[in-house]
């Protein structure tokens, strides 16, 4: 089990790193081709956006576990331990319900728009829109894991902006 978890984490982290690299490298190349070589890349923007969406979908679960999703905790933290645990479980159930709905209707959405093709490379948009399903499932797994085995709901982590 722990090997499986380690493997998952390694894979998710590596794909996230790869995704960010693609965004940075293509962003730089786009400048080189337009300004330097006078022949603009036409597909790079599409690939950068696609790459970032998949990065986000794989990275958001990791972000949840590392406490990057901030909430207003002062009311709950003022409660006695038992009640607080109850609130945290209720909160987790609401989040899971929401993510479940996103996974389900996300697949309806991705399937119904599968005939739409991307504007320059022409791949089916199921590859873009399907990401939201994977993202919801992976975030859901992290929320579940943190609620069952974690240190409780996420505290203010390293912060975002």
């Amino acid at each position: 089990m722990s090997t499986l978890l380690r493997g998952y984490r390694m894979a998710a982290e590596t794909l996230c790193i790869l995704g960010i690299c693609i965004v940075a490298v293509l962003g730089g190349l786009q400048v080189v081709f337009r300004y330097g070589l006078g022949s603009s890349l036409v597909w790079s923007e599409e690939v950068m956006r696609l790459s970032m969406i998949w990065t986000v979908m794989l990275g958001s679960g990791l972000a949840y576990s590392r406490g990057h999703f901030l909430g207003m905790r002062f009311a709950v933290d003022a409660l006695p331990a038992g009640l607080r645990r109850g609130c945290d479980v209720l909160a987790a159930l609401l989040v899971l319900g929401f993510l479940g709905a996103i996974a389900w209707y996300g697949s309806v959405f991705a399937w119904k728009t599968r005939l739409q093709s991307s504007s320059t490379l022409g791949y089916s948009l199921i590859w873009l829109n399907g990401a939201v399903v994977i993202g919801a499932l992976s975030m859901g797994a992290h929320v579940l894991a943190e609620t069952l085995w974690g240190k409780g709901a996420p505290q203010g982590g390293e912060g975002v902006e």
Binding site: S39, V42, S119, T120
Partner: peptide
């Protein structure tokens, strides 16, 4: 706009089409 037809048209015109 990054659409295949427009890229084809403006390449044929000799410009450097830039989405």
């Amino acid at each position: 706009a990054p659409v295949k037809l427009f890229l084809d048209v403006w390449s044929a015109a000799g410009t450097n089409p830039t989405p």
